[in-house]
Simulated assay, not measured.
Amino acid sequence: MIPLIGLLIGIFIGLFLKVNIPNIFAPYVPVAILAALDSVFGGVRAGIEKKFDTEIFVSGFFGNIILAAGLTYLGDRLDVPIYLAAVVVFGSRLFNNFAIIRRLLIERGREKIKHKEEQL
């Protein structure tokens, strides 16, 4: 629940407050956001599976962001698009976590319907 609340707060801040990002950081922000979303979806998945651990979530959240930004920075210095590795990995994990979350919610819904039918 904590990751979802954080995501909603971030969306609210992004929509209603004017936040200007300097051009120097422009290449890093999208990759960092993708890494952060990967962590949020992983946290939501862990919450649904009743395995959520705040320390793991927070360390993964900031670790993913730092790793993604670091790869982007290194790629800029080497003039090689290394950030694509982060985009591919975090993007695929994001879609994978979304698919698992969707399946878990559908299964939970089916179980509730079955349980109600058994009570009748």
Score class of each variant (00 low, 15 high):
119 Q>V: 14
81 P>Y: 14
6 G>V: 03
99 A>Y: 03
83 Y>G: 08
111 E>L: 13
62 F>W: 10
55 E>C: 07
78 L>W: 13
44 V>D: 03
2 I>T: 09
55 E>N: 10
8 L>K: 02
115 H>S: 11
56 I>L: 14
22 P>C: 04
97 N>H: 14
85 A>E: 01
71 L>Q: 05
99 A>P: 00
83 Y>I: 03
29 V>S: 13
94 L>Q: 02
13 I>M: 01
14 G>Q: 07
92 S>W: 06
42 G>W: 01
89 V>N: 06
92 S>I: 11
117 E>Y: 04
59 S>D: 06
59 S>C: 03
23 N>C: 05
11 I>V: 08
107 E>S: 04
7 L>D: 00
66 I>V: 15
18 K>H: 07
29 V>P: 07
108 R>F: 00
97 N>K: 09
80 V>Y: 08
94 L>P: 06
107 E>M: 04
9 I>W: 04
104 L>T: 10
108 R>G: 09
66 I>D: 03
42 G>H: 05
62 F>N: 01
120 L>Q: 06
78 L>Y: 14
72 T>F: 04
62 F>S: 11
66 I>K: 01
119 Q>Y: 02
116 K>P: 01
5 I>F: 13
5 I>P: 04
9 I>N: 04
116 K>V: 01
70 G>Q: 05
51 K>H: 12
43 G>D: 04
65 I>A: 07
104 L>F: 11
16 F>V: 15
95 F>V: 08
17 L>I: 00
57 F>P: 03
3 P>H: 11
45 R>Q: 05
43 G>Q: 02
58 V>Q: 02
34 L>Q: 04
40 V>Q: 05
51 K>C: 09
107 E>C: 00
54 T>F: 15
120 L>G: 06
47 G>V: 05
